[in-house]
Write a protein that binds this DNA or RNA. Structure first.
Length: 899
RNA sequence: GCCCGGAUGGUGAAAUAGGUAGACACAAGGGACUUAAAAUCCCUCGGCUUCGGCCGUACCGGUUCGAUUCCGGUUCCGGGCACCA
């Protein structure tokens, strides 16, 4: 064994050894429990960033740990290879997206391999390869025929100068990122997955996922957004006073967009039907038929509707923009009072949600209140707070001035539930009760009913982009939309293209000209591609059988699925994880998998964030500058106060801390770190810096410490081995100091095991090993017995660190136990006998403040502990002659004496 | 705007089920070794203090014998918001 720790030599050697031995190749083996450990696959953006290192190290620690615990482990890797950045890079550098992507993959694969991950590389896949996406197209055609996929119009961001559809990311302050033109909303036909058909199951099955973080489940629940409410119809013409029998029957199912004869009622959905008597106007979306109708002979209104079409479709933009509206002059009639209610067009009402119309109750809704004040619309209060039962203002700590607990006065808008007033027959009822009754009466009148709605919308997957999976549909003038027959799949995306503005395949007759598979007539192929979320919704299953060319999945998928541990960034908590869950259920219903859910356990790692820097360019755009090229100036408290570009010494603007991303150019390349210190140091530091779920602001301070620890470990093992290896201690009498050391060793094994397996908190596991090493360094190990205990401890230390820093541990374990190999080594087990303790130290508190410590036998009862506490001299000192009022005894912890 | 998180020394953090606040590290300061430097090792390291203690986990309030932990409110920061992945 070398006296020096030389990662630059031992790391490539270890990696080559594992590769030659195919040490991590996985196969189906029913003799062992399986453990499928999956980290979210990377987008091949060019280089690894710190988030990748964090993600894949966490996955590797868990994979290697379970391998040592005797599991049959699968840890695969692949590439989420389609996507927008390849097209942007292509435009910027005049290269084809395919070539750019493949060379990025090659570089990043090399980087990943230099991290020493225990990956089965034989299963590697890339979503941009036809042998992958052909099965996505195959499933698409089946789902299209089944009706799970359908076509409808949807709104996109349109750049009127570049004549392209823009991603939300490409809209900056309402303008196209390249053209600078004001973005418009435009409706185009798109294909949709009926994810809403699965809303109920996607919601209820969250309760069957105990291995998922609560916060992710809460986010998904809120996203799916099941709400119980009432659909209310406002007739377009006044009804005769007695006249519910005269009412036209409820809408015949024709869409609201049908020309000519429109619905005789305006439908709205509300969760607050109890406020119905407080309605002072209704608001409709700019695209609503009523708005269009009113605009026909009202140029001012038409201009306003046109204005509403400006801006991006992103919900965040819609929700934060200034709320504007205009009266259409039209009236609808209140379903109960028959009073006329003005119809307004408002930019905050979305055609895509519910009915594209809302009833407005300014007295009891924040947004309606602000809108009514702005346009001086009437405000009518119909809900008052519930009066406090019994006499008011009694009891301790009851805040006497809380307005919501008082019957009057209360301030508007009052948005809580309460008691109805000025609401006809319903006055005096509670909100809950009134919602039921109002729904019932509306139903009897034929003017509404209870309804369950979902916030979740169907998943639109058409993208007007080039670098994606072609949608396998042929448009025939006689047969309509025809799915490409299985024998003609895959529809291959041409890779040898030139990119300028717009998708090249839309201008490529050799791609889109074809014949109809049904009638043989001239037809055109669809040129839109699929949302890249579709590829990432099923890759985890394909890893089970990446070589299969006769189908999408085979029985191997059911051996490996569900994924036992999925690891990825918290930013994917909703979209990716929801789509993958949905897709799994689609595949289940196609008979491709047996399970209901794809991921049994989920670990959402916090983001690696970094400071952003930029300069404003003359054309109003921002030039993002990498933190590595910037020198910062800090104040006494360590906060960054100024920054300049190293290259020219001129100042740059500090943009704030954000997740590392390509678009903000704030990713820190880990390569320098790996080159300088080695992969083990990078891995150790990443795992030690913070617990995995917490976000981590990148700083390279502290890396030295991780490296120093590895050098100390190397030195300690080296010195021990040089003096001759001995058989590890296995049992027998020990002097007190060695017994204490051995207790600490086995406590550490128990803690590290728990930290990795249950808590998945690697930083405290490492800290515990460091403490043990500190104790080990203080032991004078000259006699045989002490050396045997030290041997036992060093073997355990090396094995416990092996999942985190495998390269160094491979050498160290071979030195400690000649002939052994790391990949076949088992995880150490805590020896219960070594954990036994006779005495424990308890804390002594007086009035909750720490005043002393005392020792008792580990099995002492409550009375004995209390007696020992009362007898302690520290207590007498702090009692100051007073007698204890109360004594709280917490065995194993403390005694609190209250005086 | 809405949904979900977070905030603890100069810094990263620990405290696992309401029970010793600051483990383990980094940085800094001091010392040993050395001709010197690097490396290594040792010590100090939340604030105030009349040296008895007192204060302190973003802020305000509550529950409790006891709150970093639970509850109500506030501020700031991060993530997501359906075409970034």
């Amino acid at each position: 064994m070398d006296a020096q720790y030389r990662p630059e030599i031992i790391e490539p050697e270890a990696q080559q050894h594992w590769e030659e031995k195919q040490a991590f190749k996985a196969s189906e083996d029913s003799s062992k429990p399986k453990y499928y450990c999956l980290s979210m696959f990377p987008y091949p953006s060019g280089k690894l960033h710190m988030g990748h290192v964090r993600n894949y190290t966490i996955g590797d620690v868990l994979a290697r740990y379970h391998r040592m615990k005797g599991f049959n482990v699968l840890q695969p890797m692949g590439w989420d290879a389609f996507g927008l950045p390849a097209e942007n890079a292509a435009m910027a550098n005049n290269v084809a997206p395919a070539g750019w992507t493949y060379s990025n993959i090659d570089y990043m694969r090399k980087q990943l391999k230099s991290l020493g991950l225990a990956i089965d590389w034989s299963r590697e896949l890339a979503t941009c390869k036809p042998d992958y996406y052909r099965w996505e197209q195959w499933l698409f055609t089946r789902l299209f025929e089944k009706g799970v996929i359908y076509k409808k119009m949807a709104t996109v961001n349109w750049d009127p100068v570049d004549h392209t559809v823009l991603a939300n990311e490409q809209v900056i302050d309402g303008r196209g990122w390249r053209s600078g033109a004001l973005v418009e909303k435009r409706d185009i036909p798109m294909y949709f997955f009926r994810i809403t058909d699965y809303a109920e199951e996607l919601l209820s099955e969250l309760d069957n996922l105990p291995g998922w973080p609560e916060r992710v489940k809460t986010m998904q629940k809120n996203w799916i957004g099941k709400s119980f409410g009432v659909e209310i119809h406002f007739p377009l013409t006044p009804t005769s006073p007695q006249g519910s029998s005269m009412l036209p029957s409820p809408a015949s199912g024709r869409g609201a967009g049908g020309e000519g004869q429109s619905d005789p009622v305006l439908k709205v959905f509300t969760t607050r039907a109890d406020t119905l008597f407080g309605v002072t106007y209704v608001a409709v979306a700019a695209e609503h038929p009523l708005a269009q109708q009113a605009a026909a002979n009202n140029p001012e209104l038409a201009a306003f509707i046109h204005e509403c079409k400006q801006g991006s479709v992103a919900e965040a933009d819609m929700a934060t923009m200034e709320k504007k509206g205009m009266d259409t002059g039209l009236k609808v009639y209140h379903p109960f009072t028959n009073e006329p209610v003005p119809v307004w067009v408002a930019n905050y009402v979305l055609m895509g949600y519910g009915e594209g119309a809302v009833m407005a109750v300014p007295a009891h809704d924040e947004r309606d209140f602000a809108f009514a004040q702005k346009y001086q619309l009437p405000i009518k209060a119909v809900i008052k707070p519930l009066e406090v039962k019994g006499e008011g203002g009694r009891g301790k700590g009851e805040p006497p001035t809380d307005p919501t607990l008082h019957p009057s006065p209360f301030t508007l808008p009052y948005t809580e539930h309460g008691v109805l007033m000025d609401s006809g027959n319903f006055s005096g009822r509670t909100s809950q009760d009134a919602i039921e009754k109002i729904a019932l009466v509306l139903k009897n009148l034929g003017l509404g009913d209870r309804r369950t709605t979902w916030r979740l919308r169907d998943w639109g997957i058409s993208r007007q982009r080039y670098w994606g999976c072609p949608i396998p549909i042929i448009h025939c003038p006689t047969c309509g939309d025809v799915p490409v027959p299985e024998k003609d799949l895959p529809v291959v995306l041409p890779e040898d293209v030139k990119i300028d503005v717009g998708s090249p395949i839309k201008k490529m007759p050799s791609f889109y000209e074809c014949t109809c598979p049904k009638c043989g007539g001239k037809a055109e192929r669809e040129t839109d591609t699929m949302d890249t979320f579709v590829e990432s919704s099923w890759y985890y299953a394909r890893y089970a059988c990446p070589d299969l060319d006769k189908g999408m999945l085979d029985g191997r998928a059911n051996y490996w699925l569900p994924v036992d541990q999925y690891i990825g960034g918290i930013e994917h908590a909703i979209l990716h994880l929801l789509y993958a869950r949905f897709f799994h259920k689609l595949m289940r219903d196609e008979g491709l998998v047996d399970s209901n859910e794809p991921f049994a356990n989920l670990l959402t790692q916090g983001m690696v964030v970094a400071e952003t820097y930029y300069r404003d360019l003359p054309d109003g755009k921002k030039q993002w500058i990498n933190p590595a090229d910037v020198e910062v100036e800090r104040d006494d408290r360590g906060h960054i106060v100024a920054a300049k570009l190293i290259a020219d010494g001129q100042p740059v603007v500090i943009g704030g801390v954000e997740k590392m991303s390509k678009s903000k150019n704030n990713g820190v390349d880990p390569q320098a770190l790996i080159d300088q210190y080695g992969a083990d140091t990078a891995r150790l530091f990443m795992m030690f810096a913070a617990p995995p779920e917490q976000s981590l602001e990148w700083s390279d301070a502290g890396v030295e410490g991780a490296h120093r620890f590895l050098k100390r470990l190397w030195k300690m093992v080296h010195e021990h081995v040089e003096a001759g290896v001995v058989p590890a201690f296995t049992g027998g009498e020990l002097p007190e100091n060695l017994q204490g050391l051995r207790r600490q060793l086995h406590q550490t094994i128990a803690k590290v095991t728990d930290d990795i397996e249950r808590r998945k908190q690697f930083n405290t596991a490492i800290a515990a090993v460091m403490e043990l090493m500190n104790a080990l360094g203080k032991v004078d190990a000259t006699d045989e017995l002490a050396r045997a205990v030290k041997q036992e401890a060093l073997e355990a230390v090396v094995l416990m660190l092996a999942p985190i820093v495998p390269h160094i541990c491979r050498i160290l374990i071979k030195a400690l136990k000649p002939g052994s190999c790391l990949v076949g080594s088992a995880w150490p087990q805590a020896d219960e006998a070594a954990l036994v303790q006779n005495e424990v130290e308890l804390m002594l508190q007086v009035n909750g403040k720490l005043r002393g410590k005392f020792k008792v036998a580990v099995d002492a009862g409550k009375e004995a502990i209390e007696a020992a506490a009362l007898a302690s001299p520290e207590l007498q000192k702090h009692l100051d002659g007073q007698s204890p009022k109360k004594v709280v005894v917490v065995p194993g912890r403390l005694v609190n004496v209250v005086v």
